[in-house]
């Protein structure tokens, strides 16, 4: 019971950071989603030791490990778009795959190129 309430508090902290990010986004009319701003805030708070990771590690870990749960309901919404996949579906899937391959090639090559001759650590 103690563990559950601790985790709930951790989640509330994450939620508050999200709300702050959302507030910033709306106040300055930014294009970046409030939750992503919240992520950056959380990262800075962790780096600067304002929030010690130990304080909220338990809940955060559960969130990260079970991220999938939070987007299953929205994914199920594809139920309303089935006719789409019978029509142009194949073309769209092809576009997604082609673009994905392009990202992988370019980001991999650019990183490799920027690394230059730097030593590759072996494990």
């Amino acid at each position: 019971m103690l563990r559950i309430s601790r985790i709930l508090i951790h989640i509330v902290v994450l939620y508050i950071i999200f709300l702050i990010g959302d507030w910033i986004q709306q106040t300055w009319n930014l294009v970046v989603p409030g939750s992503v701003i919240g992520m950056l805030i959380f990262f800075v708070l962790l780096l600067s030791n304002v929030i010690k990771i130990k304080w909220i590690e338990e809940g955060t870990k559960i969130f990260v490990n079970h991220l999938t749960l939070f987007f299953i309901p929205a994914t199920v919404g594809v139920i309303n778009y089935f006719e789409l996949f019978s029509g142009k579906g194949l073309l769209i899937v092809f576009i997604v795959l082609l673009s994905t391959a392009m990202v992988m090639v370019v980001s991999g090559l650019v990183t490799q190129w920027l690394m230059g001759k730097r030593e590759v650590p072996h494990e």
Binding site: L14, Y15, G21, M39, F42, V64, L69, F70, P73
Partner: peptide, 23 residues
């Protein structure tokens, strides 16, 4: 989605939590 919306609400803090693996 009457119930799903509740889980959906947690998408925001879930994104915030992604700072943790980066940290």
């Amino acid at each position: 989605m009457i119930g799903g919306e509740w889980i959906n609400q947690l998408l925001g803090p879930a994104v915030v939590a992604l700072a943790y693996p980066l940290y």
